[in-house]
Amino acid sequence: MAEAPEKYQQTGPKVKPRQKEEMVYTWPFLVSIEAIMAITMILAFALMATFVDAPLMDMANPDKTPNPAKAPWYFLGLQELLLHMDPALAGVIVPGAALVLLAMIPYIDRDRRGTGIWFSTKKGLPITIFSAIYTAVIEIALVLVDEVVRLPGMPEGSYRISATVTYLLEQTGLPTAAVSWVGSIFIPLVLMIGIPWVLAVIVKRRYQANTREVMIALYTFFFTSFIVLSAIGTFFRGESMHLVWPWELQPPQ
């Protein structure tokens, strides 16, 4: 017997054809929830504003650079990338591409099935967990490797994958200008495209993922990257942006 086509293994509530949604009045069923949430949040923020002061340091002084100088926390993921690759790549191209790719999601995944259900399919949550672990492990490993890698013979004070690649290629007699892009642009690009690419291939093979499930894997990659890189930038980068433990961080002067 021919194999039946792969079913859309939707999870959660199943709506029968022509079944009407059960509706409730907005007042009071929704309005009351909104009111409770709003009041709770206003109270929580008012309490925080009463007891926790917003930071205010000395007046800006262009001649006194703090070490480390850090961007606002939501940019620390990008600042983390900045340590490992060309600034144009980390600071402009990656965030720009991320926003464009995010906006493109609904134009790639056009299947309406799975709407309105957390993780859509039975495989959705396992794929999310797998993708999050995959992303976190690889990115933490790469950050650690990039912090310590250094070949004997390299110039004093130089380290990181990018510098090591440049050093190795220089041994072949190529000029520095010609080879430095390999480490700072080519390898980071290959990694940043390759890691999600391999993830998509794995979930397709291992979970027979459909388009929606591949999207879940890729969004999880993006979401986890943001959290992992921002957390490293916030809690693990100390003087001269070297890795430190959170309890060794000096509060900004």
Partner: peptide
């Protein structure tokens, strides 16, 4: 707020935008 925190965070942030190809 124009304090050290503000100034240098924006310095870092806008340095990223500066290198737009």
């Amino acid at each position: 707020p124009w304090d050290q925190l503000a100034y240098w965070a924006i310095q870092v942030g806008s340095n990223m935008a500066k290198v737009t190809p």
